[in-house]
Structure formats: C-alpha cells, structure tokens
Computed example of a mutant assay.
Amino acid sequence: MKKLIIPLFLMISGSIFSQVAIGASPENTNRWTFGGGIGFGFGSNSYFNLSAAPRVGYRLTDDLEGGVLGSISWQKSNAYSSTMLGVGPFLNYYIARTFFISANYQHYFINYKDKIYDFKANENEDALYLGGGYMQRIGTNSYMQIGAMYNVFWKENESVFSSGFVPSVGFVVGL
C-alpha cells in the first residue's frame, strides 16, 4: 500500500502544479491568492498521519497578503487516534518574492481517543505562529514556500503539540 500511495501522490501533485503554471498569465491583475499544503506520514506501531491545509488570501499591497488558513489532520496508530481541525487568519509579507515573513493564528478543535486506556477527549487549543522562509518560483504566478514557524503560545506539558516549532512546505498561486 505504501508503495502505491507515494507515487500516486507525486503524480497528482505534479499534474496539478504543471497545469497551474501553464495556465498562469504574465500580468496578474487578480488580487486573490490560493494555496496550501498536504502531507502524510508513516511510523512505528502502525502510525499513519494525513493532513491538509488550504488557504485563501488577498494581496493588500504587492508585498502584503492577508487571508484565512484552515487545517485538518487525521492521525491513527495502535495506541490512539485523533482528528484535529484548525482555522484562523494569516498575514504574509514578501521580500523581493524570494523570502517571506509570516504570522498566523489558529484555533484548533481536537478529538482524541486513547485505545489502550479507553479514554476520549475533546479539547480546544490556540496557537500563534510566527516565522518565515524562502520562496521558489514554480510558474508565472506560482511559488513553493519552504519555512519554519514557532507557536509563541506553546507551553510544555500544557499543549497537545509536542513542540512549538513547525517546519512548513506549501504552495501559493496568484502572487
């Protein structure tokens, strides 16, 4: 199954982004931007994670963008399963279309089930991510963003997250 999912994911991603790059116009007068990221992971104890983070933005100026970001994540292993849904605003500042500085607030709704102790929980958690990164052009108005964020609200032993640090890879169309 793992051997089938990874090549399928790469083929779908490649075809989506090649169509975006081909259909993009040299002069982008539309101020709306779209993008996000998807991810998956495998691990020990039959661990599997699937996540998606779509975003819709609006270019306030040529270098400043604001919008709404959502996220959903499903995790499952032999010991537990969880579903996490997040939503909130973001603000990005672009430096010469090569680097970006970003801030985003997320409110998370978390549903957790421990299979070993037969424990269930529904929790909420807030996060304020600050960070930035590098942008690589992949089409006329399309970019891949690689960066890192830190949740300034994160506190050890009080958060459902294991760390405040979050690496990120995403795509944006419309810049």
Rank of each mutant, 00 (worst) to 15 (best):
K76E: 12
Y108N: 09
S18W: 12
E125R: 03
V169H: 05
Y93N: 09
S18C: 08
Y134T: 03
K3N: 04
S142R: 02
E158P: 06
F99Q: 04
D126G: 09
S77H: 05
A24M: 10
K3P: 04
G86V: 02
S159P: 07
I6S: 15
Y93T: 05
D62Q: 13
K3F: 10
S77M: 02
Y117E: 10
G14F: 10
Y112N: 03
F165D: 00
A127Y: 03
K155H: 14
Y47G: 11
P7A: 01
S142A: 14
V68F: 14
G36W: 04
G170L: 00
G66Y: 08
G39N: 09
Q106W: 01
R97K: 15
L91R: 12
A148K: 03
G86Y: 03
F161M: 00
I5N: 08
N104S: 09
T61L: 07
A127S: 15
A24L: 03
L128F: 12
V68S: 10
G57T: 08
A24V: 05
G14I: 08
Q145C: 01
S71Q: 11
S102V: 08
E158H: 07
N28A: 13
V68P: 01
L4I: 08
I72V: 15
D62S: 09
Y134K: 01
W32Q: 06
Y58R: 00
F109R: 00
G43H: 14
D63P: 00
Y150L: 04
D114K: 03
F48M: 11
I5C: 01
S82M: 11
N92S: 07
N92E: 10
F165M: 02
I95D: 04
I72A: 15
I22W: 08
A53S: 10
R137Y: 04
G67Y: 06
S77T: 05
Y93E: 10
Y93L: 08
V68I: 15
A21F: 05
H107K: 14
N104K: 07
I101T: 13
L60W: 15
S13C: 14
P26N: 09
E27Q: 13
F48R: 11
S25C: 08
A79F: 05
L130M: 01
D118V: 11
L85I: 14
F153E: 08
S25V: 12
I38D: 03
Y112V: 01
Q19T: 09
S163M: 01
F90N: 08
A103R: 07
